[in-house]
Design a protein around this nucleic acid. Structure first.
Lengths: 347, 347
DNA sequence: TCGATTCTTGGAAGCGATTGCGAAATGCCT
DNA sequence: AGGCATTTCGCAATCGCTTCCAAGAATCGA
């Protein structure tokens, strides 16, 4: 009776032996390389499937120098925005025969760097990161020097050695402000999320700029926190306690807005009757919260896809110059913005 | 002037040469193996960091046979449930020094098998999958024969060669039914999501069983579809057109319930006045939709963590017997369930 | 002081694939 | 049939690392 030892996976050598060729032609047969007789190839492939052979990717990676995996470093997949980006990236990677390594950094510099190091050890073909704003300059040059293609999910006018792809954050901020202004709001508050977060501050910039341009009749404050539901909730709770004359709230993303909604429900403030709310992202759930959230739509899934597109071009090695792609945004009107309440919002 | 060739990453040989030792001791120094003089180790490590050396994981994996990566195959990370599980798994993997490869199968058998093949080629230490119910028996034995440790996010009483970890789906279904019954509902509809999905049907089972036990005074129908927001939306639209005497809807997960809410908003039906709704999962957003969703809470993050726990034990090789872990559920009461409307729901 | 341990290090054999180079085999033409 | 161009295939090197084995150095007890 044979001992029940752990079955070792068949190697190329096994296949070659069984097919009566050397591992060289076996390899060429399997990889589809030119220069092997159709008949022998057929034979090799049949024995390969027969033996249930699977090439060892580590071995292949070692000699070819290609791991065929790309790393995705986001702050948190639980953020529906990143989940969508991740899915877009994964689909694109899959289509190109690449695999996606998922990393959640929580935007902690040390954690992010540990991930990057790990990815570099894996010799990934490229890295998609939502941001490097929280990293020290030293860390950033470290990444640049490592030579991996990097694309950031963040809007840049250039000046970065990294490629970037993102929605037009600034324009989105502008849209939000214009919309609120058009509805008669003059005293607004912008919940900007993390100060670190480049995209979010771009959105704030766009927003504030429009308000400022509107003249002294309008004003907007900014509050920082974290760009999570909990963060929005916290800030909103304190904000609702002393709303003053602010009649509208704009948030840097939908999740923050969700936090605001949660706080509003708890504190009994009615959106949009008591205060208007506009988000950013147009996450799937934005349409079913109450009230349905008016927000700025950006193409999250496409951003993920574009990121790996760029990465693959960079990784191909022909043209290593960074690319900056920015996708359009649009306002989607739902029910969370109304006219300012007649009582407040007046001087 | 040196040609500006693409910088090749330094290898162990480079480090060894620079430190004046052989690659053998260099390796031992870096891996922390026993039996190298503290002083030489220090010297090696210093030159390693100086040269910015990073071990090639492919090479290491090739010789050690350990890839230190585990695969996560879910239907879609955009589903907040899986996003949470993914995060839990990723954190646990990270803590153990493992990496997580993300795969979205959409529950398509061919796509799932392609992923599994790819993961096997990568010689992953284990695979976490939400289900194998959609796979043919042949595919399933293929996976078993491959010898990788597998843990399913699905409840099993045993009988599977795979390990499983999940919430107590059946009990959850029971809780939902009991709660609805207690609120006076007698004519209920269960939106079960995919027929394939083992967890979801377990939930339906629990639900229906309680209703059945209640006697002929109560009844519950079942409708199948997809377990997505869109799926819930579709079904709810048709359901709302001919509600009949059903006064309460239970869904197999929160996302389906969200779809119901969306349809309700569009069609002007009021939850819970016109019809009550109870979900399953307690996704973060469940508390901020309108109305806040009464639902069954399960520990999604912990499930992800538990899955890699089991996987690592299995991968360690000592004990390869499958383990079945089931986590508790609890009802969280919010505002989507009320008494049945006086007009309907009577015989 | 000397043999016996114990430490420390080097040499070398792989891990499982890819691939350049040359040899053998085949086909084609005159 | 002979010569030459092509195919087809095998040999062996190599990728970067771990680890067994043995040899030299250091340490120790008596």
């Amino acid at each position: 009776m044979p001992t029940l030892t752990k079955q070792e996976a068949p190697t190329l050598r096994d296949v070659a032996a069984a097919a009566g060729v050397t591992i060289a032609t076996a390899s060429r047969s399997l990889t589809g390389a030119y220069g092997v007789h159709p008949e022998t190839r057929k034979r090799v492939m049949e024995t390969a499937t027969l033996l249930n052979y699977k090439p060892n990717r580590s071995a292949r990676a070692l000699v070819t120098g290609h791991s065929n995996v790309i790393g995705l470093v986001v702050s948190d997949v639980r953020n529906p925005y990143f989940a969508e980006v991740a899915r877009g990236a994964e689909d694109a990677a899959y289509a190109a025969g690449f695999d996606l390594l998922l990393c959640n950094s929580d935007l902690y510099a040390d954690r992010q760097m540990r991930y990057i190091n790990s990815l570099l050890e894996k010799r990934v073909e490229g890295i998609i990161m939502n941001s490097v704003a929280n990293l020290s300059r030293k860390d950033q040059t470290f990444i640049v020097d490592s030579g991996v293609p990097v694309v950031l999910l963040y809007q840049s006018a250039g000046g970065t050695p990294f490629s970037t792809v993102s929605a037009d954050s600034e324009r989105g901020g502008e849209l939000a402000a214009e919309y609120l202004l058009a509805h008669g709001h003059r005293h607004m508050m912008y919940l900007a999320g993390s100060r670190q977060h480049a995209n979010l501050s771009k959105r704030a910039q766009g927003f504030l700029q429009v308000v400022r341009r509107f003249g002294h009749k309008a004003e907007a404050g900014v509050m920082y926190g974290t760009h999570t539901l909990a963060g929005g909730y916290e800030i909103a709770r304190s904000l609702f306690r002393k709303l003053g004359n602010t009649t509208a709230i704009a948030t840097a993303n939908d999740v923050i807005a969700f936090g605001v909604i949660k706080a509003a429900i708890e504190l009994g403030v009615n959106i949009p009757r008591d205060v208007s709310l506009i988000g950013f992202d147009d996450v799937e759930l934005a349409s079913i919260v109450h009230p349905p959230l008016t927000t700025i739509r950006q193409s999250k899934y496409e951003i993920g896809g574009a990121a790996v597109d760029i990465l693959l071009r960079l990784a191909a090695g022909k043209d290593r110059s960074p690319e900056h792609r920015v996708l359009g945004v649009e306002l989607v009107e739902r029910a969370s913005v109304g006219a300012p309440p007649s009582g407040r919002g007046k001087r």
